[in-house]
Design a protein around this nucleic acid. Structure first.
Length: 459
RNA sequence: UCCCCAGUAGCUCAGUUGGCAGAGCAAUUGGCUGUUAACCAAUGGGUCCGCGGUUCAAAUCCGUGCUGGGGAGCCA
């Protein structure tokens, strides 16, 4: 007999008669002559209720079943006379695969997120974390579907990189030198290292994506990214996933149009395909989520230049901790004011002063600002950061000189501007931040299966 | 890295002015013929985060370290 997953079972209109289910017991309620067990197999939020009565040959064994026990159940799927579920299984056979002894840390009550982080290997067995990670899986698929449907090509950018100054933060060093060798040499001698030069884990796939956009047209990378920043916040992890589309023949407006279409598509996809799991977050995590979803899908995102944003902030009567002046990098409080109070919806901020942005962003005609764009989302902050890239070789080289960047390591990057350069643009979207926005989860460690943060790499 | 807060039973927490270590849930055992975080009863369960100090006496006060949380910076 073939196993049926619970997400299929609970949606059936008519009973197929006998069914075979495999899963884990979430809770058991005993009477003298029968037991109710809620069995979950991870395929969906719902459990299936299994009724085992004392006629079963191994009933005394069944009575020892505890929360967390793994089971194989055969029985008839029948309409449940009780409230709370459509179907239940009248078990004709219950096989215990493995009992979970009393030390099993998950109970049939609510646990704190902080406690569950200490048992990250077991937390996907809870309703909330099961739902999070099913949504995460579905959203990764949705990203690929969105891009495939639009003719984008998927690029796997290298995770080990030789460029050490991509400008996006501290990097993790990759080396095959042993501590003993380093001690013997008295220094890190990179010429003796695996690659013959310094190597790091990537902080962005952008430069690779640009090369492929200038070859395949529209591309995207979606993969892990590493930052060795000593950031101890609810919004940062050392290893996270980033989506980076890069489009040839695209300017800043096209970049924003694309970002808005992407976010709307992903939210719609979640509401269509993760309805049941999302309902848990709507109900128990953040009751304002449905409103935010509605705003994301139905309202046009705001668009505002940095210069105008400074004017808006100066005009506001809000007392900011950090004073607003043209040229400053916007602080969290400023971004929150713009997205949450002023626009009350996502807003693209564009055309930042060149001095606070990296070398590859395209210089605007005013020679003061560059074609940068950040998407600020209420409660989340910066969800997207991107730009139109500087495609003009002379401008790019001038910026690198101004910023004291060595040109030699970038010879291949500059080549792309030397041979058939075209306007192009792209951005990075933090996958975990998107999931936080979708679920109302406030700590990024709770949307990553096994989060890596300063001083923490268990599991 | 900086600022603030917290650490007491498996979990969530209370613990008054420094004076016997507590509750709910969970677990264990028993009861109960349709339960829904089932219900009822009984039982067991403690390095009060570690180290040092003050005191007749410290979960409580002081110092220090560790861990966790919130915020800031950096950013996605």
């Amino acid at each position: 007999m073939k196993r049926t997953k619970i997400n299929i079972l609970t949606r059936l209109e008519t009973t197929p008669g006998q069914v075979l289910v495999k899963g884990w017991v979430r809770t058991k309620r005993d009477s003298k002559e029968f037991s109710f067990m809620e069995v979950n197999d991870g395929s969906c939020l719902n459990n299936i209720q299994v009724l085992a009565n004392k006629d079963l040959e191994n009933y005394s064994q069944i009575q020892t079943i505890t929360t967390g026990t793994s089971l194989v159940v055969v029985g008839d799927l029948v309409a449940s006379p009780g409230k709370g579920q459509k179907w239940e299984i009248q078990a004709s056979n219950v096989e215990i695969l493995s009992l979970a002894p009393e030390s099993y840390p998950l109970q049939k009550k609510r646990h704190s997120d902080e406690f569950l982080r200490t048992i990250a290997h077991l937390r996907p067995r809870t309703n909330k974390f099961g739902a999070i990670f099913r949504i995460r899986s579905e959203m990764a698929f949705a990203i690929h579907k969105f891009y495939r449907d639009r003719g984008f090509k998927y690029l796997t950018a290298p995770l080990i990189t030789g460029s050490d100054c991509e400008g996006a933060g501290e990097m993790f060093r990759v080396t095959s030198l042993t501590p003993t060798e380093v001690q013997k040499q008295g220094k890190m001698d990179f010429t003796r290292d695996f690659f013959g030069q310094e190597a790091n884990l990537t902080v962005s796939g952008q430069l690779s994506a640009e090369m492929f956009a200038l070859s395949l047209g529209d591309v995207y990378t979606f993969g892990p990214t590493f930052r060795a920043e000593n950031s101890n916040t609810s919004r940062h992890v050392a290893e996270f996933w980033m989506l980076e589309p890069e489009m040839a023949f695209c300017d800043l407006n096209g970049n924003m149009d694309h970002g808005e279409e992407l976010v709307k598509y992903l939210v719609n996809h979640a509401m269509e395909f993760c309805e049941e799991d999302l309902s848990l977050f709507f109900q128990f995590v953040d009751k304002s989520l449905p409103g935010l979803m509605d705003t994301l899908v139905n309202q046009e995102f705001g668009r505002l230049s940095y210069t105008d944003a400074i004017a808006v902030l100066k005009k506001s009567k809000k007392a900011f901790e950090f004073p607003v002046e043209y040229g400053i990098d916007l602080q969290s409080e400023h971004e929150r004011y713009l997205a949450e109070d002023y626009f009350k919806k996502p807003v693209f901020l564009t055309d930042y002063p060149k001095d606070i942005k990296p070398f590859y962003m395209r210089m605007n005609a005013d020679e003061k600002t560059v074609a940068a764009v950040d998407l600020l989302v209420p409660r989340i902050g910066e969800l997207i950061g991107g730009s139109q890239r500087e495609e003009r070789l002379d401008h790019l080289e001038k910026r690198m000189e101004e910023m004291n960047l060595p040109k030699e390591p970038y010879w291949w990057y500059l080549d792309s501007r030397r041979y058939g350069s075209v306007p192009h643009a792209g951005f990075g979207l933090g996958f975990e931040r998107f999931l936080m926005m979708l679920t109302g989860i406030t700590n990024i460690r709770d949307v990553v299966p096994f989060p890596r943060t300063p001083g923490s790499i268990d599991f």
